[in-house]
Nucleic acid binder design. Structure first.
Lengths: 102, 102
DNA sequence: ACTATTATTCTAGAATAATCGAATTATATG
DNA sequence: CATATAATTCGATTATTCTAGAATAATAGT
């Protein structure tokens, strides 16, 4: 992953409202949640929510799929994985190193 | 980790310059780098760099240790680990799930 | 004390982001 | 076609972030 893209994704996650949206989607899994469901849960104005969701979509962190009038959102797990990998890339091989997988 | 703190850390990482600083520190490991070394590598004004480093310190992502005139910075690996864990917390138990460790 | 080095703080302008009501678009239903 | 529902876009306001030059602070050597 390119640094610019990773930064854009981290910035998208770096807002309490958007992080709450994203974590909620991570937790519900592949079925996702509709925009309306998210709105009820977070209790924020529709326009504000729409703005935040658009940012997450634009960053490539979540995807959307329409079912008639309802728009479902779900987290993009592959992208999350790529982002986490990028963060610890070329990490040192020390005891304190976080990158235990490689 | 609390959502607010995680968001602050992600926001800190969500800037190309700061992400470059952080990744550089991740890669050099526990020895860290001095502010001057980082500045030479990134070639940005000292005041701008100082501002960015302060944000990373404030977020708890990096720590600093002074050696006479030189200030060394290093990544806080434990905090990074906690942040990554938070992101995939209570993740679904599906095939597409990223949280393979639990 | 004087000078050099290393880094931060102060300050301010420019750019960007956040918020949310009102208007709009898209889809469905009687 | 009129109405309802689901969600976005528009528009305006407010607030925050980014950037970097100038001034300052802290430490060390001569």
């Amino acid at each position: 992953m390119k640094l610019e893209k990773a930064a854009r994704q981290l910035e998208a996650l770096g807002n309490p409202t958007r992080l709450a949206i994203y974590r909620g989607l991570i937790q519900v899994g592949r079925e996702g949640s509709s925009v309306g469901e998210i709105r009820k849960k977070l209790e924020i104005p529709a326009s504000t929510l729409s703005h935040h969701i658009a940012k997450l979509v634009q960053a490539g962190l979540i995807s959307q799929q329409r079912d008639s009038r309802t728009l479902y959102c779900k987290a993009d797990f592959l992208n999350m994985d790529a982002l986490m990998t990028f963060l610890v890339e070329n990490c040192c091989a020390e005891d304190s190193c976080i990158n235990v997988s490689s």
